[in-house]
Design a protein around this nucleic acid. Structure first.
Length: 585
RNA sequence: CGGGGCGUGGCGCAGGCCGGUAGCGCGCUUGGUUUGGGACCAAGAGGUCGGGGGUUCAAGUCCCCCCGCCCCGACCA
């Protein structure tokens, strides 16, 4: 492809809409353009990257025994009502009606529709196991789309669903997918971590996430250097920390004027923050309830939601808190509120002679003893923190940020049961199909790759997903020898199966170098004065400062070798026909 | 959804308080000089100032409504 023909409108300046680096660079490097909040057009360069990601994903899905199909985007409500998720998804789901007023949605995921398909078509154990997948747009009307491709409302996703006759089969399918995913992210050239995950709204049993490590990742994970344990922070169980127990003293109310926060109360009363009981109010499926935590801990809402088994969970507003407690925020506590059900984090039981709000403005209670002064209903509700003991081996946990690019679930019979997807076994008994599901965010993976691989000048694509392998830059195309050699090299590289762009634009060298860096071609071949004087061109790998001078004839072989070392197969081709006929200089 | 901010040539922004000819940089077009890290000179093209309503002799600017986009959002309980 000649650069002058490539539809790649790069931007010199950062568009104001973009905050995170992947969003900025994908826009500037002409990979994407915004169509609406959280909805993007993929330009030719970006689409090539996505195609490469999808190709690797397809190869590994097929290798693992998957078969690709395509499912509807527009899906009827009745299927979602059957599993109860029409209501669970809430405002996140794009809903629409047809001309008769019948309700539909744009598929946020495809468990329902594929289960319905399999229910209709699979009757016998002889048809199992079955692994079906699709790669297509999915739709979630996010409360707040952000970070460009990392959290969009329309996005490309691969989902594979496994159908097995029993739990053992499901576990085998799950293991195959675990293996396939590990191969995929390795082949994509991304550093990743596999963590234990919260099955969340999808439901079911065991689940793991594949996280691309990046400082800007929105997911927090904890991991153990000692034993290799790793989990999403929403999932990691916390052991209660043992605390020194004191002899319980009588409950007492003290004045704490204008002292509201845990920090302020601790400072004012001269007690450590852990001795304070923090009380929060939530509304779970409409019902008000209280949560008690140690003052220095944070609630993990995912754990709370799992524990309660509720569909919706949100913090109660100040008015509701005031109505229930008779006190403004800052002075509320669990003591004396018989009408409100309180749940306490397991650690609360360890605290003796604690401090809590008195449910009276400007007052707190001291010497509060959980169990004595309010009923204890304990659960693991707090968020894991750096330094907490590893739930497996007890060594201190570390924390990291990551971008979730894949998640695998053992669903069991949640969907097959709800939708009646069954088969007949050898004895002619009807049994529910046992399912798993396995997703990869394709478009998100592209953004994650940029988050992980970039520098001040632009993107540094891992070679397997780069839109092109190399760019050839004649420093001065007006200089006849440079131009001839550049074209010759362009043809030779193309014939060697290397995907190459010839930067034939009448720009100064600096402009072409800057665009090459921004777009992130893994290899750059510069044809300059030295081609006349010494018969050599300069070859540089993106992201490294060194340049090697090579004889023109040696260049194609060198690049093939280098690309092969990065896992790129470059079978030679007889023609290189993309764009040559439009050549101009 | 709540809070904050922003919508002015393709991109990045000024102008707005204090109403009176719509500006700057980059990009784009043409010609010339340049040519190993985002050149220079000259001449050009390009704007319903997000939309609607209002105030006024006069609105990018003041008022009202709407739309779009961006950022933040338990740790206070």
């Amino acid at each position: 492809m000649y650069f002058s023909r490539l539809f790649a409108p790069t931007l010199r300046e950062v568009p104001g809409e973009a905050e995170v680096v992947s969003h900025q660079l994908l826009l500037r490097a002409a990979m994407i353009r915004r169509a609406a909040a959280g909805i993007y057009t993929y330009l030719p360069l970006g689409w090539r990257v996505l195609e490469k990601i999808m190709r690797i994903v397809r190869e590994e899905m097929d290798r693992a025994g998957g078969q690709e199909l395509l499912l509807p985007i527009v899906q009827p409500a009745e299927l979602w009502q059957a599993t109860g998720r029409w209501d669970v998804y809430g405002p996140e789901m794009f809903r629409l009606q047809d001309r008769h007023g019948r309700p539909f949605c744009l598929g946020p995921t495809h468990e329902e529709i594929i289960t319905a398909l399999v229910r209709a078509e699979v009757k016998s154990y002889r048809q199992l196991p079955l692994l079906l997948y699709q790669i297509q747009n999915k739709y979630r009307d996010e409360r707040r789309p952000r970070f460009g491709l990392l959290r969009g409302r329309e996005f490309i996703m691969k989902d594979l669903y496994s159908f097995d006759r029993d739990e053992e089969g499901m576990r085998a399918s799950y293991a195959r997918m675990y293996e396939a995913y590990s191969r995929i992210f390795t082949r994509l050239g991304l550093a990743f971590r596999i963590v234990e995950a919260d099955p969340g709204a999808i439901g079911g049993g065991l689940s793991q996430e594949f996280m691309v490590t990046a400082a800007t990742g929105e997911a927090s994970v904890v991991f153990c250097e000692a034993c290799g344990y790793a989990a999403d922070v929403d999932q990691a169980p916390c052991r209660p920390q043992a605390l020194p127990r004191e002899e319980p003293k009588p409950l007492e109310e003290v004045a704490t004027p204008e002292v509201r926060t845990v920090e302020e109360v601790a400072a004012y009363l001269g007690v450590p923050q852990w001795r304070i009981l923090k009380t929060l109010f939530y509304r779970a499926d409409g019902r008000l309830l209280g949560i008690v935590l140690r003052g220095d801990r944070r609630l993990n809402e995912a754990k709370l939601q799992r524990f309660l088994g509720c569909l919706s969970l949100e913090m109660a507003d100040d008015a509701a808190v005031a109505a229930a407690t008779g006190s403004p925020p800052g002075f509320v506590g669990p003591v004396g509120l018989e009408d409100v059900v309180f749940y306490a984090d397991a650690e609360v039981a360890q605290v003796t002679n604690a401090v809590a709000g008195a449910n009276r403005e400007d007052h707190h209670l001291i010497n509060v003893n959980p169990g004595r002064d309010f009923p204890l209903r304990l659960a693991d509700l707090r968020a894991a923190e750096e330094g907490d003991p590893c739930p497996r081996c007890g060594a201190p946990l570390s924390t990291a940020q990551g971008i979730e690019v894949g998640q695998i679930f053992q669903l069991g019979t949640k969907y097959s049961g709800a939708l009646g997807a069954t088969y007949l076994d050898e004895q002619g008994r009807e049994r529910p199909i046992v399912m798993g599901c396995y997703g990869i965010g394709i478009s998100r993976t592209m953004a994650a790759a940029v988050e992980q691989h970039h520098d001040a000048a632009g993107i540094i694509w891992p070679a397997p997903i780069a839109p092109y392998h190399a760019v050839v830059i004649p420093v001065n195309p007006q200089e006849g020898r440079q131009w001839e050699v550049a074209v010759q090299l362009y043809r030779q590289l193309g014939a060697a199966g290397i995907e190459v762009v010839l930067d034939d634009r009448p720009e100064r060298a600096g402009v072409k170098f800057a665009d090459a860096d921004l777009i992130g071609f893994p290899w750059r071949v510069t044809v300059g004065k030295k081609v006349s004087t010494q018969g050599v061109v300069d070859v540089r790998r993106r992201g490294t400062p060194e340049e090697v001078s090579l004889a023109v004839e040696a260049t194609a072989a060198f690049l093939r070798e280098q690309l092969a070392a990065q896992g790129i197969e470059t079978g030679s081709r007889t023609h290189n026909h993309d764009g040559d006929s439009f050549s101009c200089r």
